[in-house]
Simulated scan of single mutants.
Amino acid sequence: MTNHNPARSGGPGGGTGVSVAGPAETPYTRHAPAGTTTARLLADAVLAATRAAGIELRHVDGLGVASFTLGHDHAIDLAWRMGLRLGWLMQDTNGGASAGGLLQHAVRAIQAGDASVIVLVAGDHMDRAAHESLVRSYNSATAEHLTPLPMTGPNALFAMLTSRQMEQLGLTREDYGRLVVTQRRWARRNPGAVYREPMTMADYLAAPAVADPLHRYDCVPPVSGANAVVVAADDRWGDTPRARVLAVTTSYNSDDQVGSGLSTGLVHCAPRAWECAGAGPEDLDVVSCYDDYPAVVLAQLRDLGVIDGDAAVPAFLRELAEDRTVPVNTSGGQLSAGQAGAGGGMHGLVEVVRQLTGEAEGRQVRARLGVVSGYGMVLYRHGACANMAVLGAAA
């Protein structure tokens, strides 16, 4: 089943205009200090976002949370510990697609009058034990059918998907390397990225194999951290830098896990989102795609219409490496910044809002229109959830 209902800002049937401000993240760390907890990371991100947005915590009346490792606690526990009294509360479990899902519901909640100021936060304390536990028991299909093979994590699944994509599109490892090396070049300008060392194509190609054809730099590194933004009606912000939500569309279980995985649910999301936003991929100034593997980025760029057809993929990657395309994953993406568990789903939203509000210090591009795409939740073969948000800089 798919959900193609967009969240619009203004316009016929769109209701109240809604914007996002206060993009924030806790420092990402590969090895978090002793005593780090998921709840503390999430709380720190909420406080950072409200401070950045100029919002007092007592004015927050909505909270959306995404996390894999809150454990026995839930969104309501986090709200209670932070002293929040809420009229709207949501916990999203869809990983890489969590930010888009939370944003869609938050926009609707504000338009319906259920809340006036909503903080969306996602993240995890992802140490080695937490990561190993997560990939072994991600869901019942993984625990019952994949772990006994044994298969410890999604690398093997996405190695097969990458092989299919290479064959269909005529790609080489060098093609994927152009994406990875370009993202590392962005990461070097992002003080929040965990991996900022220079990377050449030779470095990429020489990296140890993980699961053919994937090598080390094709696989997202787990880190600890959290990301957050604040969502409120346009008239709430005054002079605060913000990004207007022009459209949000979602798609769940678009192919019943029987497709090739080379197309995502974005093929259903994108046409409606572009229509609602009154724009198209040719109008984009910046795009952030969920990037646990390079092949997944290419699948999203094709489904979004940023890459026009299969034959255009190799040329797009060559131009990307020469900075002659729309900027992609200007934070360095998760492949260089790190994947903070469910925070990876919010990472791209934070970055695009930063770009649209002129807050991407050191890596700022001239951006008036941006897109964030989410992808995630491998049920058995590939991700089952996808969404996209079209955002515009406030005038």
Rank of each mutant, 00 (worst) to 15 (best):
H31R: 13
L42A: 07
P241L: 08
R318C: 03
G177L: 08
A206T: 07
D283K: 10
A367R: 00
L304S: 10
L179V: 10
V365A: 14
G225K: 08
C385S: 13
A393D: 11
S163T: 13
L171P: 06
T69L: 15
V180A: 09
A122I: 07
R81L: 08
L157P: 02
G338A: 13
G13E: 01
A315M: 13
D235G: 12
R196H: 06
L169R: 02
T142G: 00
D235S: 15
R58H: 07
A315N: 10
G17D: 12
L157K: 04
A367T: 11
H347C: 12
P314Y: 07
N329P: 03
D114S: 07
T29N: 03
L301A: 11
L149I: 04
E144D: 15
D127L: 06
A24E: 04
A106P: 04
S224W: 10
G177S: 09
S336G: 00
D127H: 09
R216Q: 11
L42W: 01
Q104E: 05
G333W: 03
A321L: 08
G338P: 09
P213S: 13
P148L: 00
R81C: 06
M377H: 13
R30A: 10
A277D: 00
T182E: 11
R366T: 14
L369C: 05
I76T: 04
S373G: 06
S260A: 01
L214R: 11
L149H: 11
A279F: 09
W186N: 01
S331T: 13
N227M: 12
A209C: 05
E197A: 11
A24T: 03
A393T: 01
A24F: 06
G22Q: 00
D283T: 07
V390S: 01
Y176S: 02
D255E: 15
R381A: 09
L214I: 09
P221S: 02
R216M: 12
V230N: 00
G100W: 02
P241D: 11
